[in-house]
């Protein structure tokens, strides 16, 4: 909320209009009625979807958004309540769930109590991510454990193989050093063959 400031209507007309739309402000000064009158009705209000309510501080409250991001909208959209109410404007469920969150917060519930209230009402399905308890813990940790276990196994096998091959290499190494250098014929032939690939 520190980042956003809702400017009052009067200040908006005063500052923003003065800076951006000098012509309209002159018109505004002449009539000075636009500010008190309700905004004009749209010619085709039915074409903009369901009517929205005015935005209050609750809609932008990070605390409430945080709660709503943990709750799943029950309309079947698969989104969390916050995302649904700010994205799917045809959905009537998420605004209702939002109002319910606000009501609970206003009545003094803590975050956990709000969550619990929703779980009591809709079941565990209402949580965006399962609670970290019981079988769900398996859900969270299994991939990590599987990767770590396989990784550790790979390291172990590799290091064992490594020591074996190192020993072999040492045995072979003493033999290969005894081997004479590549013959000159062979070296020249290799050079010629390599040149073909350049």
């Amino acid at each position: 909320m520190q980042d956003s400031v809702i400017v009052t209507r009067r200040a908006a007309v005063g500052a923003a209009f003065a800076a951006l739309l000098p012509i309209s402000i002159r018109a505004g000064q002449g009539q000075d009625t636009t500010q008190s009158a309700a905004p004009e009705r749209l010619p085709y209000p039915g074409m903009v979807g369901a009517a929205k309510e005015r935005i209050t501080d609750y809609e932008n409250d990070p605390f409430i958004i945080g709660i709503e991001e943990r709750l799943r909208c029950t309309c079947g959209c698969n989104l969390d309540v916050y995302t649904c109410r700010t994205t799917d404007f045809t959905c009537g469920t998420s605004p209702e769930m939002h109002r319910q969150v606000v009501r609970l917060i206003e009545s003094g519930s803590t975050e956990q109590e709000v969550i619990d209230a929703f779980v009591a009402q809709h079941g565990e399905l209402v949580l965006m991510a399962p609670k970290k308890e019981g079988f769900n813990i398996v859900g969270y940790v299994l991939p990590g454990i599987a990767i770590t276990a396989v990784g550790a196994l790979m390291l172990w096998v590799l290091s064992r193989k490594n020591s074996v091959t190192a020993a072999e290499a040492q045995a072979a190494g003493s033999a290969s050093i005894a081997d004479t250098e590549m013959s000159a014929d062979d070296a020249a032939r290799l050079e010629a063959e390599l040149a073909d690939l350049e």
Partner: peptide, 16 residues
């Protein structure tokens, strides 16, 4: 950064 705002014509809002 995200926010919602209801604005009448001429009204403005700022976001950092």
């Amino acid at each position: 950064k995200e926010m919602e705002a209801s604005l009448e014509p001429g009204e403005s809002v700022t976001l950092r």
